[in-house]
Simulated scan of single mutants.
Amino acid sequence: MLAFLVLAVLSLAVPSYGLDDSGCAALGGTCTDYRYTTCKAGYVTNKCAGDTYRRCCLNCDATCQALESSYATYDSSCAASGGTCKVTSNYCSGSYVSGKCGGPSDRKCCVPSSGGGGSNSIGLSYSSCAGVNMVLRDGWGARPPKYTNAMHTPVSQVFIHHTTGSACYDQDRCSSLIRSHQNYHMDSNGWADIGYNFLIGEDGRVYEGRGFDRQGGHTQGYNSVSIAVSFVGDYTSRLPNQAALNAAKAIIDCGVQLGKVTSGYRLKGHRDVGSTACPGDTLYSHIRTWSHYS
């Protein structure tokens, strides 16, 4: 009887939220590691099971999405400083700065700290890299990863891939295609995230996949010792345009500059180490002329 009373008292003393994700679900939100995904409507703490990094991302409904789009038209000052505008309950690897973003007062510019700060690769900055027009994960609407494995850098190998399928020539179309590739990798293949470290659109932009600091899922047997740069589209019978080729070289050079890729790295096509036609006959012939190909 005494044991029953003790258990009853303890059950009253323990809050229902935080033991599982029901508190977040009751708000219509989703529990995720807030370091890796920007939540447009903001995060709420103490509604999710797990460690302190796992927080409740509130749902951004149609009204929220429309407001966010209108706010974004005033975000150019933040973008020019290499930052990202978001509600301040989101993770920021550097510091929040006021007066650079559209929208309410709690929507501020997250400016990466010196040498650091992407939405995916925490503590890493691309803003100092010449020729890199980077779209971070939240910029193309990435899903949070199921889990992550840290990459030991610098890596000494770079693999070139192509996604196959349609190419893209503007950020909206590239983002849509990359989301579909991520969905396929995660839902059909059962992978933790989109497989590539970076993707290249024929809009000349670099799209952050797993970044420099996380192991990819792209080249069997080499994922822990290499990065993969994948061109969006099928390059069996044609080359990517010059803007895309330049962007691919720029992100590799950026990796060298940031100490994530060795200066004497070896470049290969996916087919060099696997039974595949990737990255397409025409693109493969072209990368064999690049100085680090071996």
Rank of each mutant, 00 (worst) to 15 (best):
M1L: 02
F4V: 10
A8F: 01
P15S: 11
D20Y: 02
G23T: 10
L27P: 07
L27S: 13
C31A: 15
T37M: 13
K40L: 14
K47C: 09
L58T: 05
A62W: 04
L67T: 01
E68I: 02
E68F: 01
Y74T: 12
S77H: 04
A79S: 13
G82W: 03
V87E: 11
T88L: 03
N90E: 06
S93V: 07
P104I: 11
C109M: 12
C110D: 06
S125C: 00
A130I: 02
G131W: 00
V132L: 14
V132C: 14
D138T: 05
D138S: 14
W140R: 02
A142N: 02
A142S: 06
R143A: 15
M151A: 10
V155G: 07
V158Y: 08
A167K: 09
R173K: 14
C174L: 01
H181Q: 10
G190D: 13
A192Y: 13
G195W: 00
G195V: 01
L199Y: 13
G209K: 09
D213A: 13
R214N: 04
Y222F: 15
Y222N: 13
V225M: 07
D234V: 07
R238G: 05
L239V: 07
P240R: 08
A247I: 07
K249F: 09
A250D: 06
A250S: 15
V256T: 09
V256C: 08
K260F: 11
T262L: 04
V273W: 00
T276F: 08
T282C: 11
Y284N: 14
Y284E: 12
S291K: 11
